[in-house]
Amino acid sequence: MLKIFILKMLSIKDLYVSIDGMEILKGINLEVKPGEIHAIMGPNGSGKSTLANVLAGKEEYEVTHGEVTYMGKNLLEMAPEDRAKEGLFLSFQYPVEIPGVPMVNFLKTAVNEHRKYHNEKELTAGEFLKFMREKMDLVEMRSQLTNRSVNEGFSGGEKKKNEIFQMALLEPKLAILDETDSGLDIDALKTVAHGVNALRKPENATIVVTHYQRLLEYIVPDVVHVLYKGKIVKSAGKELALQLEEKGYDWIKQENEN
């Protein structure tokens, strides 16, 4: 009976999405199974981030056609917070600063909202701090950062580490990493990739949205998709990423313009 879930974690069918009347996604089809890592690559403006944000539930995007099923449920009908609590996690391309909201409060609230949703006992302040410290090592998160307001005064690299740190705390089933490599130097990139790999479990899946092949050296995908002008124009194994690196996106553009 549970096999349905195991076979398909995420299923996107013929998805069309607009923002302010402009069509960005034009018929996306994608299936992700537990244990898989999918990479979505593509030139700037192809709709990669739109896809990531639509899956997380950002409201200014209008789904005009198509369906998305996540863990057997209609994802598009769910509020962003419920998607999160059902195990979908978006690592933001641009993590938001929230002045005045302390990191610890934010994280504790998020973790306890998840726990409540799954009928688990909420963590006390002490229990949470212990749990948090365990996870901090994973991404080499400096402890001073958790004393600040959410993302306030964080460097670009610290913001991205903070995303993976949150992922470690929330233990999602499906993680969508939106340009997690952008703005990272090679050391930070390794740390972040190490964190993502350490969090992998056979029943979880990851979608890596990226412009460059670089990150995929550390997070090795099972499938690579190329998104171009709102459509997936190519899907293949990890070698596709290398091909793209070599030939550049012009290759895709030419193929699709002709």
């Binding site: 539930g57 950002k58 999160a84 933001f92 929230i98 934010f106 998020a110 909202e113 949150q166």
Partner: peptide, 8 residues
Amino acid sequence: FYMRARGI
């Protein structure tokens, strides 16, 4: 949205 995307 950031907070909601974390389950709050």
